[in-house]
Simulated assay, not measured.
Amino acid sequence: MEIERAREDLVVAAAAGAATIVVAVLSSVVSGIAVGTLPSLAPLGVYAAYLFSRKGGPYGPGDTPRNWAAAALGVGVVVLVVGLL
C-alpha cells in the first residue's frame, strides 16, 4: 500500500470515527438527544462505502478523501438532528 493512499484512508477513517464517537457521547450525555445504536454507527457506513468504492479508478473530480470525510461528518450531524426530533 502506498503511503499516500494510507494517509487518505486515515483522514476518512478519523472523520468517521470522530463523528461516531461524538454522536454516541452526545446521545448518552444530552438528555434531549435520543439516538439508537445502529443510527449512531451511520458515519462508519460512509467509511465502508469509501473503502468499497475505491477499487482502482478512474475517480471523478468530487471523489476525494476530503469530500468523503465531510460526508461522514455530515451524516453524523444529520443523525444528531434526527435524534433531536
Rank of each mutant, 00 (worst) to 15 (best):
Y50T: 02
A15L: 01
V35F: 02
A48T: 11
V35I: 15
A13T: 04
N67E: 05
V82P: 00
L44N: 09
M1H: 12
Y59P: 10
V46G: 05
G83R: 01
A70C: 09
G32D: 13
M1K: 05
P65V: 10
L10G: 15
V82D: 12
A19V: 05
G17W: 04
P58A: 11
E2D: 13
S40V: 06
A71S: 11
P58I: 08
A48Y: 10
V35N: 05
G36D: 13
G74I: 02
G74P: 01
V25K: 10
L41K: 07
A42S: 13
L85S: 15
R5V: 12
A42E: 01
Y50C: 05
W68T: 08
L85D: 06
P61N: 06
A49V: 11
V46H: 00
A15R: 10
W68Q: 05
G32V: 13
D9W: 02
V81H: 13
G83N: 11
P43T: 03
P43G: 04
T20C: 12
A70H: 04
V12H: 07
L44K: 03
L51E: 14
G62F: 14
V12P: 04
V35S: 12
T20E: 11
G62E: 00
V30W: 15
I3Y: 09
F52V: 11
A24D: 04
K55N: 15
R7F: 04
G74V: 03
P65R: 02
S31T: 11
G56D: 08
V22T: 03
V82F: 04
E2V: 14
I33F: 09
A6I: 07
L41F: 02
E8N: 07
P43I: 06
R54I: 10
G60Q: 13
G74Y: 02
A69V: 03
P58V: 07
I3G: 03
V75Y: 05
G57H: 07
Y47C: 00
V75G: 08
L80Y: 08
V75H: 09
S31Y: 14
M1C: 09
V29Y: 14
A42H: 05
A34T: 15
I3P: 01
G83C: 04
G83A: 12
V23S: 06
A69G: 10
G60C: 13
G76Y: 10
L26F: 14
V22Y: 06
A14F: 10
S28H: 11
N67S: 07
Y50L: 02
V23F: 04
V77F: 05
G32R: 13
